[in-house]
Write a protein that binds this DNA or RNA. Structure first.
Ligand SMILES: [Zn+2]
Ligand SMILES: [Zn+2]
Ligand SMILES: [Zn+2]
Ligand SMILES: [Zn+2]
Lengths: 127, 127
DNA sequence: ACGAATTGTGTTATGTTATTACATATGCTA
DNA sequence: TAGCATATGTAATAACATAACACAATTCGT
């Protein structure tokens, strides 16, 4: 799967970043590369989300590169520290399983499932 | 627990509504009651969220009244139809359990956990 | 009952996030 | 090489959320 220039720029920027980035963060960081307007960022993000190379953190309005090799099941789960902003992506097959079962029962056709656990990371909780 | 006038207005509006409402939807609906500016809505919502009488649907930037009697575990889960916008709140204790275990292992202190399953409801998927 | 502290309110202005609309360009394929 | 789908650049605008300030109401200890 070949990414276009803007898609690569945004993807690389997200992989470099150690923290979630908003669209406007990304835009600021990529001005030198010639990106100048929000749609350029959002369009690249749309494609990357579709490919699941990137996830959107709904509760932060921010984006991260997928921490795993590549998945295409539409499931993602994160813990997010309210103090330092650290984010960790995790995968709990049991949870996916239970949610799939629930969907089947309800005849709901799931496309994407997002889990966001907000609180305090080990480091911040210690203080 | 006693709600103030604005909090009651917003809460009632959300309970009446059969669909998730954005803050600006609520504002429009409550102009006749004297509410005129976004902060009045957002402040009421903040309080209602804190009491968990209301939930925020992160992926929609919208709000719903809690479908359950009252819970205070910070945990909520929804299915959201991308076609008709219908939302269903559900509760899967097993999932809460697994996520709690994961948090414990990671020494992550969870405050609120949100699950949003997006896709197509039974009715919309049939067509 | 009094004053202080806290909480809620009303309002204006502003900040942040995301999309619409339209013109142009690029790459593929019939 | 014409047509089509996809990508890009740009300006303008829409949608969502908060900051800051003045004032009113409520709570609580004395
Ligand atoms: Zn991932
Ligand atoms: Zn932290
Ligand atoms: Zn609830
Ligand atoms: Zn539906």
């Amino acid at each position: 799967m070949k990414l276009t220039k803007n898609q690569q720029l945004v993807y690389e920027a997200l992989k470099q970043a150690e923290m979630p980035q908003t669209a406007y963060n990304l835009l600021d960081g990529l001005r030198d590369e010639g990106l100048r307007a929000p749609p350029q960022i959002y369009r690249a993000l749309d494609k990357l989300l579709e490919l699941e190379l990137v996830h959107r953190l709904e509760s932060l309005n921010a984006f991260v590169a997928c921490a795993h090799q590549h998945h295409n099941d539409g499931f993602s789960a994160f813990s997010i520290c309210n103090d330092c902003g650290a984010v960790e992506e995790f995968n709990l097959p049991q949870v996916s399983e239970i949610l799939s079962d629930w969907s089947s029962q309800k005849a709901f056709v799931a496309e994407t499932t997002t889990i966001e656990v907000r609180g305090h990371c080990a480091k911040c909780a210690r203080t």
